[in-house]
Amino acid sequence: MSGMTFTMLDAAKMSTAEIYGQTLCDLGDEHPEIVGLSADLAKSTKIGVFGDKFPGRFFNVGIAEQNMFGMAAGMAKTGLVPYVSTFAIFTSMRALDQVHTDICYQNLDVKMIATHAGLSFGQAGTTHHCTEDIAIMRSMANMTVIVPADGIETAHAVRAAYDRKGPVYIRINRGFDQVVYDKPDYGFQIGKAVTLHEGSDLTIIACGATVWRALEAAKMLEKVDGLKVRVLNMHTIKPIDVEAVERAVKETRRVITVEDHSTIGGLGSAVAEVAASTGKAFSFKRLGVPDCFSIIGLHEDLLAHYGIDENGIAASVREMMGKDFEADDNWEDEV
């Protein structure tokens, strides 16, 4: 990847947020108009390394998220490109009016790198779990929403956000992510899903922390059950890759979405909106957090609890494959 000052080996030892911080430092070298903002979470979100490198271009506003996003809007109006980092919940909910009205409405170049998303801050409880942000952010006009699957994809997204006009929301996790990509150049492009595993029986569409788990499930299902499961990494929720969803519906007729987010309004809903417009009959299931405030616990445990880990995903695939719905309907056009 151009401009990357760390190797894949380094990356394996860095948390996702650390990779973000380093990437932003590199971008900062290339583009003097980039500024950084945080709200007493410079250390936690790792935007602090940008602050250490460019102290004059970094603003810690204290614990005041609304002020921070408003300031970012003002800065963007003057031609600066603010990267703003706090926890996902405070980006998408505490400061939402500022994000909506000051940033999205004016279509400003503010890049929001929101950390501790989904259930990744599991032990912190509902005040810090963030399972509604994809739904919220993708409903904002002008907004681009990206949910990277791992650290390297985060580096791509942070760079791509600079080149993309308008507000961008990048949702990352606390701590380390499982490594999905062992080489950097796999062709990351905003709005283009990545096929990680080919298959014609069923398609799993995943984003973020569930991508690695979906891939593991697909490998296991191939070995144990002989199933051919397609896995799509839908890293961009908005604009969604319409073509990839349509192909999944037409070619596999069974689609399961999986996300570390509520089943309402997120990836599953975004996919459903496209899939329902294909005019094709298909079997569909959305996996995620089922319209509740999550229990507390370790991220791993919570993903298992809500059936969005490898085993949970595999069980849902098996269940869908076991349904004899084809007899009821005219499925002659199935490929």
């Binding site: 599991g122 032990q123 409880g125 005040t127 507390i296 616990g297 370790l298 609890h305």
Partner: peptide
């Protein structure tokens, strides 16, 4: 405290 499924997490509910 903080264990998975415990009523006691970092911020009390």
């Amino acid at each position: 405290y903080n264990h998975t499924g415990s009523p006691l997490g970092m911020h009390l509910d």
